[in-house]
């Protein structure tokens, strides 16, 4: 079921194939070298949904920043469809951990940011309205970010990313701040959009269940410096059910890998 969906997606290939090869990265913190990523290799097929799990501070956000092209990697190769990633590109859009909306722009103008920056806004204004409708915030188009709740702001950030029709959607705990009801709705929305548009998705999350509900594959990272500890393929179609024994079993495995076997 998943495979057929992915096959049809691959024909139009709206997704982007990502290759991470032997990637290492370090920061300098008060004069000390702080290794954050250690020889990370990962291939993500076009149209695949990959979830990254790992302890806090292990380097997941750093990996996403490198993939986005916001910083050059110390060592290793990053290829998007075979082309080296050297700078940010609107085909690879990030939804950051914080919504970081521009407080001086109304919600509508925040969502329109990418199209405006690329000089496409004049011909694509309808897309902004659609993206706002998708996240259920059409009513708040004229509001300022300060007038939104935390969850609403995060939904605006999601709309701001989706409106660019990215080929790789990079999600850094985008649902972390949402209440559980909105979160379930947004998870459903992400899956629907992904199935419809066929982008490649890279999702960092702290929520094992979320990873299992959304992803084709889950990558578990070790503590800092992050190395890949395990890879699990989730062979289940959508929609998935959180009480599926197969998923519950995987969840137990992953929690074990994260050193949390007891808390299950």
């Amino acid at each position: 079921m998943v495979n057929t969906a992915r096959a049809s997606v691959a024909q139009q290939s709206p997704g982007l194939a990502l290759r991470i090869d032997n990637l290492s990265h370090a920061f300098s913190l008060e004069g000390h070298r702080l290794p954050v990523l250690e020889r990370v290799s990962l291939d993500v097929a076009a149209g695949e949904f990959v979830a990254l799990l790992g302890p806090s501070g292990c380097g997941k956000s750093t990996l996403l920043r490198l993939v986005a092209g916001l910083e050059p990697a110390d060592r290793g190769t990053l290829l998007a469809d075979g082309v080296a990633i050297t700078s940010p590109d609107p085909s690879r859009v990030v939804v950051f951990q914080d919504p970081t909306l521009y407080p001086w722009r109304r919600v509508w103008d925040n969502v329109a940011l990418g199209l405006e920056a690329q000089g496409l806004l004049k011909t694509t204004r309808g897309k902004v309205d659609q993206a706002l409708a998708k996240v259920g915030l059409s009513q708040f188009a004229r509001a300022y970010p300060r007038q939104l709740s935390g969850g609403m702001a995060q939904r605006v950030a999601l709309a701001r990313a989706l409106v660019n029709e990215p080929r790789l959607l990079i999600l850094d705990e985008p649902l972390g701040k949402l209440d559980s009801l909105t979160r379930i709705a947004m998870q459903q929305e992400l899956i629907d959009l992904w199935q419809r548009q066929g982008y490649t998705a890279l999702l960092v999350t702290h929520d094992v269940e979320e990873a299992l509900l959304l992803a084709n594959r889950v990558i578990v990272f070790s503590d800092r410096p992050a190395t890949i500890k395990a890879e699990l393929t989730i062979d289940r179609g959508y929609p998935r059910h959180r009480d599926d024994p197969y998923l519950l079993d995987l969840r137990k495995q992953i929690l074990g890998l994260l050193g949390l076997a007891e808390s299950w």
Binding site: A68, L70, L113, A117, N164
Partner: peptide, 15 residues
Amino acid sequence: AYYDVARTLGASQRF
């Protein structure tokens, strides 16, 4: 972070 957001969305220096 404001610059990061704009840069990933394809903003030029001018923007």
